[in-house]
Amino acid sequence: MQKLSIKSGDDWVEYSHSPVFSREELPSGSARLVAGVPGGNSVVLFQMLEHMAPPFYLLYLLHTPRGEGVSGRYQSPALSELELKDFLGRFSQFLGMDARHDVWVHSPGSNATVVWDRHNLIYAYGPTARFESALRQIGFTAGSAKVDFVHAHHYRAEYDADSKAVLIYFDWSYSQLRPEDE
């Protein structure tokens, strides 16, 4: 099961990224890394977290609810490394296989943010050299991880209970989605 499918002839087939990343220069003059998440495997995010320091703040963006709650931005309180890893471990399959959400992890102390989006892409801001090294350690190479092709997102009924559990896991601060979240 993957978050995305692509058109192949007349059929839709599941799509998984290759283990590649690229560096992008931003208009601000800073840079970010963009990496695919092969098979929706949370090990990619966990590898990035090794280069970030607590406390962490988690932002769960629910774009496409299936009755479990209201679309919006769910901001966690400050989290220890253990609290964050417990959450990500508990929900790793849901986060990697269902496209109804994006997950942002921010570390003020490291001035770093890692975003795992609904296309199974990771955007890493901050210590990009360390993030690049982390990706290379798990077999990633330079390449394009864009989703610039016709695709379909999957919002899977089998993950509805997990989505509901996410919304009650922390004492989230809620706000509405912003236009740039869409």
Rank of each mutant, 00 (worst) to 15 (best):
L4W: 01
L4M: 08
L4T: 00
S5N: 10
S5D: 11
S8I: 13
E14A: 08
E14K: 04
Y15L: 11
S16G: 06
S18C: 10
E24D: 10
E25G: 09
P27E: 10
S28T: 02
G29A: 03
S30N: 13
S30H: 12
A31T: 09
A31H: 09
A31F: 14
R32D: 01
L33W: 00
V34K: 14
V37N: 00
V37K: 00
G40E: 00
N41A: 07
S42I: 11
V43F: 10
L45G: 03
Q47R: 06
L49P: 01
E50F: 09
H51S: 03
M52N: 03
A53I: 08
A53W: 04
P54Y: 02
P55N: 08
Y57K: 14
L61D: 08
L61Q: 07
H63R: 01
T64N: 11
P65A: 01
P65D: 02
P65F: 02
R66D: 08
G67L: 02
G67H: 02
G69P: 04
V70C: 05
S71G: 05
G72E: 12
G72C: 05
R73Q: 04
R73C: 04
Q75S: 12
Q75L: 13
P77K: 09
P77L: 07
P77R: 08
A78S: 08
A78F: 05
E81M: 04
L82T: 14
L82A: 13
E83N: 07
E83K: 04
E83L: 04
L84W: 03
L84G: 00
K85S: 06
L88Y: 03
G89S: 04
S92F: 07
S92T: 08
S92K: 06
S92D: 08
S92H: 06
Q93H: 12
L95D: 07
L95H: 02
M97P: 01
D98C: 06
R100D: 06
D102G: 03
D102W: 01
V103C: 07
W104M: 11
W104T: 05
V105D: 04
S107Y: 00
P108T: 10
G109C: 11
S110W: 02
N111L: 13
A112V: 02
T113G: 07
V115Y: 02
W116E: 11
D117Y: 04
D117F: 05
D117V: 05
D117A: 04
R118T: 06
N120S: 13
I122V: 14
A124P: 02
A124C: 06
R130S: 11
R130Y: 12
E132P: 06
S133G: 13
I138W: 04
I138K: 01
G139E: 01
G139I: 02
F140A: 11
G143V: 12
S144V: 15
S144H: 14
K146N: 15
V147C: 15
V147W: 03
F149M: 12
V150T: 12
V150K: 11
V150E: 10
H151V: 06
H154Q: 10
Y155G: 15
Y155M: 13
R156H: 13
A157T: 12
Y159G: 09
S163R: 14
K164N: 15
V166C: 09
V166L: 14
Y169G: 10
F170W: 13
W172A: 08
W172I: 01
S175V: 09
S175T: 15
S175A: 12
Q176C: 14
L177A: 07
R178S: 12
P179A: 09
P179V: 04
E180C: 14
E180A: 15
D181N: 09
E182H: 15
